[in-house]
Nucleic acid binder design. Structure first.
Lengths: 196, 196
DNA sequence: GTAGTTTGCCTAATGCCTTTAGGCAAATGC
DNA sequence: GCATTTGCCTAAAGGCATTAGGCAAACTAC
């Protein structure tokens, strides 16, 4: 039986493409096998399980996204960098909705530890160098931005900002404006316990 | 054959509970049937499909969440309302991770139109009354907050802010502080095209 | 080049999930 | 009470995930 020349990396890439075509949720070992012209069980020579496939696609997407983010923010600072970084996430999600969903896949702790997640965090932290934030507030800001980027993009992709005025592109821009202003005027920590 | 007394609403609630137990992704018609003590095909008297079940659970969760949000913001304004609203989302997600995930399920346009999604939007808009924002900027702020609430909570739940310092509770509080400050000092629209 | 070993492909098989069809009897309506 | 509707069941079919074992290509060592 001639070998089809499959590799784990190749299957991961094919899986990522399939994800963008049919949606990450619809990616199956069976469909991938059909796409590669081999029988379903053959894929188990290269993949441990369906979950293994999804994990690999997720890691691939996170890496790809981090590479784009790194390129986009290189040589930029302050507001320029903030906009560039945010746009990377939004553009990637719109160009590659399946991969973007994959990047949101719940990884097990071990896989997560080896993922590009930390790169994303570092890149976000890097753009904050253009703002005057203390160590701790920088971490808060990283998480705020991370949450906003992901949340806005996810809601938008899900149609949450559907065809209503103003369009979501404007909201995106104004949100980035607002966040830039916020980062330039980050409020000091309150004196006592605040709320909960 | 005695009737088990199943109803669509009852199955939806049982499905929501199952979601919190095993995770929304693991909810199946088969498991629900086992839980109710009936055969799998029996459920098709009350549910159109597995997707119908998930859609119903999603609508249920969105409604439940909107009720909680309405209660929490009633009689509050400004920063107090902002914190209360944000906390509803975060608390719900932590208490009911499966239902929260269900609330994020991609509904088809028809189901989405009849969902509590618009209530959520209105509630967020309502808390913004305590801030001086123009009509359009209010919408931008609704989307920014919606994105942040969802994004932060989702990343947190996924372990994205794992056991590192400062803990995510502090980041949550500081983020709400920051957003309150932002809303009180919302930047005016820039003169010309900004960025993209 | 040859022999032994490893590896990647296949088919068969198993089990789980989703769904449909048709039968039977409980429940409902007149 | 009778006719109709409805909710339960079993049987069946198809799809997906996965394992086991066989065969031959590919690799390694001498």
């Amino acid at each position: 039986m001639a070998r089809a020349g499959l590799t784990t990396a190749g299957l991961t890439r094919a899986g990522a493409e399939l994800a963008d075509e049919v949606g990450f949720e619809q990616v199956t070992v069976s469909e991938l096998a059909r796409r590669c012209g081999v029988s379903v069980p053959s894929l188990y020579s290269h993949l441990a399980s369906s979950r293994d496939l999804k994990t690999r696609i997720a890691l691939f997407a996170l890496e790809e996204l981090a590479d784009r983010a790194a390129d986009a923010v290189a040589g930029r600072a302050g507001r320029d960098a903030l906009v560039a970084l945010g746009n990377v996430y939004r553009d990637y999600a719109r160009q590659h909705p399946g991969r973007y969903a994959a990047a949101r896949f719940r990884l097990d702790p071990q896989a997560a530890a080896g993922s590009a997640g930390a790169r994303h965090s570092r890149l976000t932290r890097a753009i904050l160098r253009g703002y005057r934030l203390g160590e701790e507030d920088q971490t808060h800001a990283v998480r705020l931005l991370g949450g906003f980027f992901h949340g806005f993009v996810d809601l938008e992709l899900a149609g949450g900002f559907g065809h209503s005025v103003p369009d979501s592109q404007q909201s995106w821009q104004r949100s980035l404006d607002a966040l830039d202003a916020l980062l330039r005027n980050w409020p000091p920590a309150a004196q006592g316990p605040s709320g909960r």
